[in-house]
């Protein structure tokens, strides 16, 4: 198996007195499309800035494509990073912007860029593009580098659903073309649910859930039944969230076998529900990293 394109060990970043991230250990599988989820302020942007060498770690280490982004900035030519808001030169035309990227990126691939950049007139000034077009242009600029690793920070934040879908199509098309590993930071699970096969959930500056999406969904079940004093339930390894409403009890659980007790209604969990349960401040479980999984091709 290829080495992981992004590895962090005990990574921490302090801003004045506050830790933005602390004790973060992580290994992203090669070729995965990773959803980096978590509430605002969880440290998603900080992690991406550390991965691109824009910030220096206070403690611990991060390596991208097997290299240290601070000491070895050459690695940046193989990373495509789009910060929040897709900043571009507004007075440049689309063609100028592409030309600028071509001249500043040694690995620039005109063919990829031309093929992906459709339905945007190259004479238009960047400042006159719609939000969606600007986001697509920014993404084409990084895909044109044929990067091995693509890092996107809240790419859907300012887009309407249609523009968001178009951006996602462009991203997936680019991934099919370049086989890049992708990390998409988003606080809206629905935006990334469709594509990501691996999830990293940050909360309070650390990883609170990580793993292959399909395996996570397979190992969690929602149990509903009459309210009762809760002992051990056969088939349940861990209760992530417990909710009472009137006479009913709802448990979001990690299962390790069939639930035989017929008084429970057992249902699968959606990714959104799962992440919300792990994020919920009412009952935050201890940080855990599920078993290592066979990575790229899930299931």
């Amino acid at each position: 198996m290829s080495p992981s394109p992004l590895v962090a060990h005990g990574l921490g970043k302090r801003f004045r007195r506050e830790w933005g991230l602390r004790g973060l250990t992580l290994e992203i599988p090669q070729g995965a499309i990773v959803g980096l989820a978590g509430p605002n302020g969880a440290g998603k942007s900080t992690l991406l800035a550390l991965a691109t060498g824009l910030l220096a770690p206070t403690e611990g280490a991060i390596s991208v494509l097997g290299r240290d982004p601070l000491r070895d900035p050459g690695v940046l030519s193989e990373i495509g990073y789009v910060p929040q808001g897709s900043p571009l030169y507004r007075s440049f035309s689309v063609a100028d912007t592409i030309e600028y990227a071509r001249r500043t990126n040694p690995l620039w691939d005109d063919e990829v860029a031309t093929e992906l950049l459709t339905r945007i007139d190259s004479k238009t000034k960047v400042g006159a593009l719609s939000e969606g077009e600007r986001a697509r242009l920014a993404l084409v600029l990084v895909l044109g580098k044929r990067p091995q690793l693509v890092l996107l920070d809240e790419p859907f934040a300012s887009l309407d659903p249609l523009a968001g879908r178009e951006l996602l199509q462009l991203l997936m098309d680019g991934v099919a073309e370049t086989s890049a590993t992708v990390v998409v930071a988003s606080h809206v699970v629905a935006d990334i649910e469709r594509v990501c096969d691996h999830i990293v959930l940050l909360a309070g500056g650390g990883v609170c859930l990580e793993g292959n999406v399909e395996q996570l969904l397979e190992s969690h079940r929602l149990l509903t039944g009459p309210r009762r004093p809760l002992g051990a339930v056969r088939g349940v390894r861990e209760v992530v969230r417990e909710r009472h409403s009137g006479r009913q009890l709802t448990l979001l659980t990690v299962v390790d076998g069939p639930i035989v007790d017929p008084s429970w209604t057992v249902e699968p969990v959606s990714l959104e529900e799962l992440l919300l349960a792990y994020m919920a401040p009412e009952r935050l479980p201890a940080p855990r990293t599920p078993e290592k999984v066979p990575l790229r091709w899930h299931g």
Binding site: V175, E177, D197, R296, W297
Partner: peptide
């Protein structure tokens, strides 16, 4: 092709490849 499905549905290429496999 995988790329056509991906561009059409905006899904992960790995998913399409897995289905075809």
């Amino acid at each position: 092709t995988v790329r056509e499905v991906v561009a059409d549905l905006a899904i992960n290429p790995n998913t399409v490849a897995k289905a075809y496999r």
